[in-house]
Amino acid sequence: MSCPDFPSDPASGPTGAATPAPELSGSGANAPSCVGESEAKRQQILNGANLVFAEHGYEGASMSAIARKAGVSKGTLYNYFTNKADLFTAYVEHRCREKLPPILASIQRGRTPRETLTLMAGGIIQLITQPESLVLYRIIVSEAPHFPQLAISFWQHGPNPALATLARWLAEQTERGTMRTDDPYLAAEQFFSLCQTRIAHRKRFNMPLENEEEDKRKVIQSAVDVFLAAYALQPDAQNNSPP
Rank of each mutant, 00 (worst) to 15 (best):
V35F: 01
L117T: 08
P7K: 02
A90P: 09
L233W: 08
A188Q: 08
H201V: 14
A17M: 12
R217P: 05
Q238E: 14
H94Y: 05
A40C: 00
D86H: 15
V226G: 02
G60W: 04
Q221S: 15
Y185K: 09
V224R: 12
V226L: 14
T118Y: 06
S25H: 04
P159L: 10
I107T: 05
G57S: 10
L77I: 03
I107A: 04
F53S: 11
D225C: 11
P243N: 07
A90H: 07
A162R: 09
Y137M: 10
D86Q: 10
R204A: 15
L209C: 10
F53H: 13
A164E: 15
R202P: 06
S8A: 11
D86S: 12
V72Y: 00
V224N: 11
A151N: 13
C96Y: 05
A90S: 13
R180H: 06
Y137G: 06
G57Q: 11
P14V: 15
G122V: 08
F88L: 12
E213P: 06
V141Q: 12
L209R: 13
F53V: 13
Q196F: 04
N239W: 07
N47F: 01
H201M: 10
A151H: 13
Q156P: 03
A85E: 14
Y91I: 01
G110P: 08
V72R: 00
R114M: 04
T178N: 07
E210D: 14
L194F: 14
A21S: 13
S153Y: 05
I140P: 12
E55R: 15
A54V: 08
T181Q: 02
A49D: 07
V141F: 07
E55D: 13
Q130E: 15
N239S: 05
I152M: 10
Q234K: 12
Q108K: 09
